[in-house]
Design a protein around this nucleic acid. Structure first.
Lengths: 335, 335
DNA sequence: CTGAAAGCGCTTACAG
DNA sequence: CTGAAAGCGCTTACAG
């Protein structure tokens, strides 16, 4: 493969001129520029990103940091981010912080970031104080999605409003005995989303003058499996709720399956609503409050690119709207 | 942040010695090595990957190339690969080749690879001849998952055997009128997996002396939505199949929903089986032929790392086993 | 066992 | 408008 020196030699100019011509910098005569471009094309010249990075101090690489990669929400974000970055000449390097345990995760280290990336996007990862300090020390711009990082821009939905919409939908259908699934996991108490959603559930119930039954509030690890298992326990209680709000569609799907397994008809005997509009929710007829996950990824990538390319280091919050999507998993309270 | 020069100065040795000591090379006295390590730690020294790459010619970065990122199969692979790479000091850079159209995809370019990665893993992407030539020219090791690349190692399942297992399960249950969903998409006729699975469907039916009804073979774009829509059409035919084999679980889920939508009981009136053991298949009670997707990702990463670190450039095929998992979406043929 | 020096392939002031 | 030269921060023969 040819280097900038080859191009310079063939074009009969210096490497400095090749560098300027190829990057479209000013102060190169049109004829010279054209000659350089022609030669570069002819030699299939592509600048070595590693040399460019060393010389310029910029890598054009962004770290995408996620607590899991396999779940729909995160995979959808990663895909949207990667495309947006690439359209502006940047690349995504991945850090999956998933550990073998549910409540633990790998820490962000200097090793992952230093001279490797120009900035980072965190996907719903609550940052530890020393991680925040590390990113500050390295002077890297950061955009958060979901779980916000102090002093940094954040793209998210309004978890409280979203949950209120879900609960209100059930209340509007006449339900009074409403259960909840998606309690805050014990050892990740610093995660904001589960906390906000549960708070909003309680607040909405209180505002409607409805009691919250503590034993109808379930934990589960935010997977459909756990929700199906826990949901079966919930629905065997007497009395049992006539409806359940799940903090995610995947959990809602699990609960609905457990209801069916117990012979309950959905929505005639039992209603369930989730949050997300998961990829299968339409096909499965799940009522949900939709969020546009890909749009959040694109917005975050654009914010980071603005910081990288234009030096626009805002600390704005971008709050994306959510909307109720009524399908067939919810219905009027049974008589 | 400190550089190798800082460490050398504080430790009172040359940068060459620091470099050797830190990388654990031979011919450094134990005392010198320890002093260097101490100083490096004290200064929070981390070698600049960009400088290391330029000097050594290796980036320790691997391109992970996928046709989509949001679908479960690919997200699961990416997650497994990223972890395996990181455990050996490598990183994953992502290339999502998804275009806006289903039958097109972005091409792999020199720009993505040259001096940017040490090798690549392709996730079920059928490579064009000029892409293969590019990778050859750049001298990059490559490991394929799923769709194989000539002369390169490949990790996959045996699509024919897997499909045969699925079809045979239905035949064993007494079904004779069996439909198929997951025909080969028109403009991606070079994709091997759909082709192999459909071939195996036909062969297995033939071997059992059963007719294949051409209008019971559906295309669909391998999403649950399309399968639900197409499945509804299929099940309105008269006569209609008593069972359907879907080439993926996501499609099987779609077909099952369309059956339920038409008032058919599953599995009493209608059976459906998929392939994958998708993340929700357990909860949804879908009968399937399971493949271990994460294991395929790990195996591919290990093969690539062997090529990178030990120079073991095999061209082995690794064929992973699959297994029938009977759940509640299949049952005996209705009387 | 250790160091001086060249080299990796660019970018970026500085001159002219 | 263009070039010579320093510099980015490492690794790697080559000497000793």
């Amino acid at each position: 493969m040819s280097t900038i020196t080859d191009v310079a030699r063939v074009a009969g100019v210096s490497v400095a001129t090749v560098s300027r011509a190829l990057r479209g910098l000013d102060r190169v005569s049109p004829e010279t520029r054209q000659r350089v471009l022609d030669v570069a094309e002819e030699l299939h010249y592509v600048a070595s990103p590693t040399a460019t990075s060393l010389a310029s101090g910029r890598t054009r690489v962004v770290a995408v940091v996620a607590p899991f990669l396999t779940r729909w929400f995160f995979a959808t974000l990663v895909s949207a981010i990667e495309k947006e970055l690439r359209s502006r000449g940047h690349h995504a390097i991945l850090f999956d912080l998933e550990d073998d345990t549910y409540d633990q995760r790998l820490p962000l280290t200097q090793n992952m970031l230093w001279k490797r990336v120009d900035g980072l996007i965190t996907l719903n990862v609550p940052m530890e104080p020393d991680e925040v300090a590390l990113v500050d020390r390295l002077g890297l711009p950061l955009v958060a999605i979901g779980s916000s990082v102090p002093g940094r821009p954040c793209v998210r939905i309004d978890d409280r409003t979203t949950m209120r919409t879900a609960v209100q939908h059930l209340i509007d259908l006449g339900h009074e005995r409403i259960g909840y699934i998606g309690d805050v996991p014990r050892n990740v108490a610093h995660v904001q989303t589960p906390q906000d959603r549960l708070d909003a559930f309680r607040a909405t119930m209180a505002a409607a003058g409805l009691p919250v039954v503590e034993e109808w509030i379930l934990g589960s690890d935010w997977t459909a499996e756990a929700a199906a298992r826990d949901g079966a326990g919930l629905l065997r209680l007497d009395p049992r709720p006539t409806a359940v709000v799940a903090a995610s569609d995947e959990m809602a799907i699990g609960v609905r399956e457990s209801a069916r397994g117990l012979g309950l008809r959905v929505p005639e005997d039992f209603s369930v609503i989730g949050i997300d509009d998961y990829v299968l929710s339409g096909v499965l007829g799940l009522t949900t409050v939709r969020q546009d996950v890909a749009a959040q990824g694109r917005a975050a990538a654009r914010l980071l690119l603005a910081a990288l390319l234009e030096g626009d280091e805002g600390s704005d919050e971008v709050v994306m709207p959510t909307e109720l999507v009524v399908r067939s998993s919810t219905g009027p309270v049974p008589a």
